[in-house]
Design a protein around this nucleic acid. Structure first.
Length: 221
DNA sequence: GACCAGGCACATC
DNA sequence: GATGTGCATGGT
């Protein structure tokens, strides 16, 4: 049964690593900025970019709105793809002012599904970024899927290689009790264990899930 | 020096 | 609908 497997994986990861206490970073805006900056990028680089933003007094929606794309790009340079991401931050902030008068708290009253669709309509916010914002900034019961989640689910035979994001999200959301705290920790634990034991060229040795039945030869990405 | 990182949009077939 | 490509810095 899938739900038992998912529960067992969670317990093994939690037993080994403990609570991760995500999101790393402070406050809603910083979580959202981090979610965009960390796209396909190491978190350490994102921290440097956020430090730059803090140093320049740019951790406010007003400042992010008024700063030029070029200046913003320079500040977030360490996070990589800096021109692209400067535009994405701008897109989000513009959307926030157009739809919520620049108030993040105004998003609280919107239902999760509607809010998710609205976020996905912002250019530069895809599935993972939207779901990270929903879960970590707004405490919504959404399971965040990422590359590690996909890789581990495939290697443990929970889903077929090549399946889409929504299919994976559905796997977790429909087989686990909806619980914000647990979804929060589960995703963070996947990232934690994935970094160490489940990269493209790193397989299993020493992983807390090593004893579970899984396919080390599974074709993934 | 190659490989990788908590993706996403867009072009092309 | 699937597959390929550009975007970029910094650590291992």
């Amino acid at each position: 049964m899938v739900s038992e497997k998912l529960q067992e994986i969670y317990e093994l990861l939690f037993a080994r690593f403990g609570a991760q206490g995500w999101w790393p970073g402070d406050g809603r805006l910083e979580i959202i900025i981090g979610a965009i900056l960390t796209q396909n990028t190491n978190w350490g680089n994102v921290e440097k970019a956020i430090m730059n933003l803090r140093g320049a007094g740019c951790l406010s929606v007003e400042k992010l709105r008024s700063i030029s794309p070029a200046e913003l790009g320079e500040l977030i340079r360490p996070a990589g793809y800096y021109n692209l991401k400067a535009g994405r931050l701008k897109n989000f902030v513009e959307w926030l002012f157009e739809n919520y008068d620049g108030e993040l708290s105004a998003m609280e009253s919107i239902g999760t599904e509607s809010l998710r669709e609205e976020l996905l309509a912002v250019k530069g916010i895809g599935f993972e970024t939207a779901d990270s914002i929903l879960l970590y900034a707004f405490g919504r019961e959404v399971f965040v899927v990422d590359a590690y989640t996909a890789r581990m689910a495939v290697r443990h035979g929970l889903i077929e290689a090549g399946c889409g994001y929504e299919e994976l999200r559905e796997l977790f959301e429909s087989n686990l009790e909806a619980d914000v705290k647990m979804f929060n920790e589960y995703h963070a634990l996947f990232v934690r264990v994935g970094k160490e034991y489940c990269r493209r060229t790193t397989r299993c040795a020493g992983c807390p899930l090593e004893k579970l039945p899984h396919n080390v030869e599974a074709e993934d990405f």
